[in-house]
Amino acid sequence: MGIDLPLLWALIIGFGVMMYVLMDGFDLGIGILYPWLPDKHHRDVAMNTVAPVWDGNETWLVLGGAGLLAAFPVVYSVVLTALYIPLVLMLLGLIFRGIAFEFRFKARERERPIWDKAFIGGSFTATFFQGVVLGAFISGLPVENGVYLGGPLDWLAPFPLFTGLGLVCAYALLGCTWLIMKTDGVLQARMARLARPLSWGLLAAIVVVSVWTPLRDPAIAERWFSLPHLPWFAPVPALVVVAMVLMQRALRRGAQVTPFVLTLLLMFLGYAGLAISGWPRILPPNIDIWQAAAPPQSLGFALVGALFIVPFILMYTAFSYYVFRGKVRPGDAGYH
């Protein structure tokens, strides 16, 4: 039996996107939380917790985009055509967020608020439009013979806009629990108080999306609520409830690492739920991974590079987090 190259590439791209969401989510979340950090020293500490790792986190976004182009060029071209505006706005947000990292600590005191606003605006914009792209993709893109048939503003619909706001809440909770883990004192206590409403907001977003998607798409409803799938997929929502209960307990007892781990679990479960709903469609509503795949020769050639580079990304990512482990406190060396 030969290797199912489209399936393997779908798993690689899915893994890359998941790693990006989990790892870049908390530093975008810190930017979203900046309005709740009025103290200059708290803002310095918050930025310093992610300064050594934020740009490495974006490697996974590059891997996902490049992998999509190499393995599923039809999907790449359709998504880029249909969602060009939100994708450009997302990239502009990431650019402003990156510029803010580079300029904020080097700016004169009176100019620093400008870069704080760039950090906030860039983080919120990038996050919101990532969610919009996700929602529009889930909603389905009309395609015929590999050509997008919709309009440039079809993404301006209630479901994509809601998923954009839901992702803002999710990333804010990631950033909040990251700061609980990486800081102490007044800043940690402030984040612990803020984590409670954010966790309930994330749960509400998960519930709304979980109800909305099967109501919109009968195929998704059949997958989740019919036999023999129901016993296999029921643990996903059950685990969401368990993780939420454990989250509230951890916040009440003042745990520092557990809330972040549970937030990662909630994000993974939400990602898994969306994957279950759509599988094996890679271009909703009706194009699967085998129909959209590049020729086997292209998939095999690109796979050699992917299998070489992904382990290196994992190794240097793990090493960077190991080197910069521990708490970050006021007065520690800043970002340069």
Rank of each mutant, 00 (worst) to 15 (best):
I85G: 03
T81M: 14
D55P: 00
V74T: 13
L80Q: 09
L61T: 08
V74M: 15
L68Q: 00
T81E: 14
L63A: 15
I85D: 02
G64T: 10
V79D: 03
G56W: 00
G65M: 12
G64R: 06
L69F: 15
G65Q: 09
L80V: 14
V79T: 12
W60V: 10
Y76H: 11
L69T: 05
S77I: 05
L61R: 08
G67E: 03
A70M: 12
V74C: 00
Y84P: 01
G67N: 10
V53E: 00
G64V: 07
N57K: 05
T81G: 05
V79I: 15
V75C: 02
L80M: 15
L61C: 10
D55Q: 12
V78A: 08
L68D: 01
L80P: 01
W60Q: 11
W54Q: 06
I85Q: 02
Y76W: 14
N57L: 02
G64K: 05
V53H: 01
A82I: 13
V74L: 13
L68H: 00
T81F: 02
L63C: 10
G67Q: 06
G64D: 11
G65D: 12
W60E: 11
E58A: 03
A70S: 12
P73M: 13
S77V: 10
I85P: 01
I85E: 03
G67Y: 05
D55A: 11
V53G: 00
G56P: 02
S77Y: 07
P73C: 14
G65I: 12
N57H: 13
I85K: 03
L69R: 02
P73G: 11
V62I: 15
A70E: 01
